[in-house]
Design a protein around this nucleic acid. Structure first.
Length: 484
RNA sequence: GGCUCGUUGGUGAAAUGGUUAACACAUUGCCCUCUCAAGGCAACAUUCACGGGUUCAAAUCCCGUACGAGUCACCA
């Protein structure tokens, strides 16, 4: 059976945005659905203008953080290297293949100036006509071309397209798409700086690297016929195409690198887990056949099916990601959870409170890691609060009730020798029973006294356990003083 | 403007010609409960952009319209 080979081919022009990551994910899943499938990373740095230093490292780091490990790539090597286009260029392959097309009559050398073409285009647009460039260089004689090259005139190599007929191709997601050749313009294959364009390098490298499935955004849908014409000119087998719908920021805009739209790095900084992010974005534009949403990466590999990729754009919903992140946090083993939250806890808790107990009250509550510091901000320092806090209609508490409850609680707690959860719990619950009041009338005031806040993670019992006997009694005293 | 693609609730979506259009997030209400969460239960599209057509039967097939997106670079 054919070995599946997919590739992720980003250009190193900045951070990794979510749509990009999802494309990488899908390419990975398609390869890894099969035991011998390969996922390849290729860096497309043919645009020397837009290169950004360090961008390649961001790509490496992101893939690694997500567990999207590539089998071949610039850092891990492989049999089809080099895996960076600027390095591939050194052997002259793009030029060689471009010249092969020229010889076959499928491309030609063009000396036209960019500005001239642009000017013609503007004239056509002003008239409201559609613009297809008819290149006069196509008619140049071989001798003249050679002479001008020899004279040092800059040139590009441009594709030849027969305007007659139609070109169609099959996409695994969108089905069969055909276009009239007369609407296709002849794209530049090799730029005047000697670098190939994305369009050309992509075809050459996908073929040379034996890529079987091309996964990319649907913005390439309308130019794919032109790529196929190149495959045909060489007589090469075409890959399967899997075009993915866009990930949108809102109804009208794609998620983009501009104006701080969610990048993977941003989300991690905001306290989201890579595995939750990956799980969430897998569901943007794809749905499993079973009624389930939580998938680990290996589970996704099994469940993924190209046939179930959607055709329309999906809006990125941070609320749902937040929920999913919470699921991952809650389902995590406790020891892993503790080491994960440690740096966030210490942001607001400098005193030596038991981390295990803190983790226990946080685990069911925090959806993102970054909300942790604020949830614990009352531990080190009791905030100043108003006695109105003791009034709660549902708990049937008032400052008067609180005063009685706190005095009674103080008494039983101060006599406690072994300060542990069960003891505190039993003492307070039996106290409430003795006083013949509902638990809330006793515990609510205690919780407020301990925290000075209307809402806290955990209740009175958990908080007193974390704060310890001395601090708890001290805070109850403070409350008693406030209440006069 | 030409070409290509898309349109199911606030969001992600299922359904692949045949009962009351799944499910999840969000929202609202109730239960549980010492607060907040978590958890449980319930409500939330007489309708699938709109208009025609085919059919005994259409969200599902066909045609048209509207709206949206992509593309038309020596960017990817």
């Amino acid at each position: 059976m054919e070995k599946i080979r997919t590739r992720f081919a980003p250009s190193p022009t900045g951070y990794m945005h979510i749509g990009n990551l999802r494309t990488a994910l899908y390419a990975y899943l398609i390869a890894k659905k099969h035991p011998d499938g390969s996922f390849i990373l290729r860096i497309e740095d043919t645009d020397q203008q837009r290169l950004i230093e360090g961008a390649t490292d961001i790509i490496f780091d992101t893939l690694k953080a997500c567990g999207l490990n590539h089998d071949e790539g610039p850092d891990v090597g492989g049999d089809f290297g080099p895996y960076v286009q600027s390095e591939r260029m050194k052997s002259g392959i793009y030029h060689k293949y471009a010249m092969e097309l020229v010889e076959k009559g499928k491309a030609h050398i063009c000396f036209c100036k960019e500005e001239d073409i642009q000017a013609q285009k503007e004239v056509a647009e002003a008239r409201g006509e559609s613009f297809i460039y008819i290149d006069p260089c196509k008619k140049l004689s071989k001798e003249e071309v050679e002479a001008r090259i020899k004279a040092g005139e800059p040139y590009v190599i441009r594709q030849n397209i027969d305007p007659n007929g139609t070109t169609s191709f099959h996409d695994e997601v969108y089905g069969t798409i055909s276009v009239d050749n007369s609407t296709l313009d002849e794209m530049i294959l090799l730029k005047s700086d000697g670098y190939p364009t994305y369009n050309f390098a992509n075809v050459i490298d996908d073929h040379l690297m034996a890529i079987t499935d091309v996964v990319r955004g649907n913005e390439y849908l309308s130019s794919t016929p032109k790529y196929n014409l190149i495959y045909e000119a060489f007589g090469w087998d075409k890959p399967r195409y899997i075009h993915c719908p866009p990930v949108m920021k809102d109804e009208h805009h794609k998620l983009s690198k501009r104006n701080g739209d969610a990048s993977f790095q941003d989300l991690v900084e905001k306290g989201y887990l890579p595995e939750a992010i990956l799980n969430y974005i897998a569901l943007l534009g794809w749905s499993p056949s079973e009624d389930r949403e939580i998938y680990s990466l290996p589970e996704l590999c099994q469940a993924f099916d190209v046939k179930r990729i959607n055709t329309s754009g999906a809006i990125f919903d941070i609320e749902k990601l937040k929920w999913m992140n919470g699921v991952y946090l809650r389902d995590m083993p406790m020891d892993k959870y503790i080491s994960l939250i440690k740096p966030y806890v210490s942001q607001s808790v400098k005193k030596d409170y038991p981390l295990t107990e803190i983790a226990a009250i946080l685990k069911e509550r925090a959806n993102t890691l970054t909300e942790i510091p604020e949830m614990l901000d009352f531990l080190d320092e009791l905030p100043d609060y108003d006695i109105d806090l003791f009034t709660n209609k549902k708990m049937k508490t008032t400052p008067e009730v609180a005063k009685k409850s706190l005095a009674a609680a103080k008494e039983v707690l101060s006599s406690l020798t072994a300060w542990n959860h069960d003891n505190i719990h039993d003492q307070l619950i039996t106290l409430a029973q003795k006083m013949e009041i509902k638990n809330g009338m006793l515990l609510y005031p205690v919780r407020v006294a301990l925290s000075g806040k209307a809402f806290t993670p955990g209740g009175a019992i958990e908080l007193s356990l974390i704060l310890g006997k001395d601090e708890s009694l001290k805070r109850i005293d403070t409350a008693l003083n406030k209440l006069g």
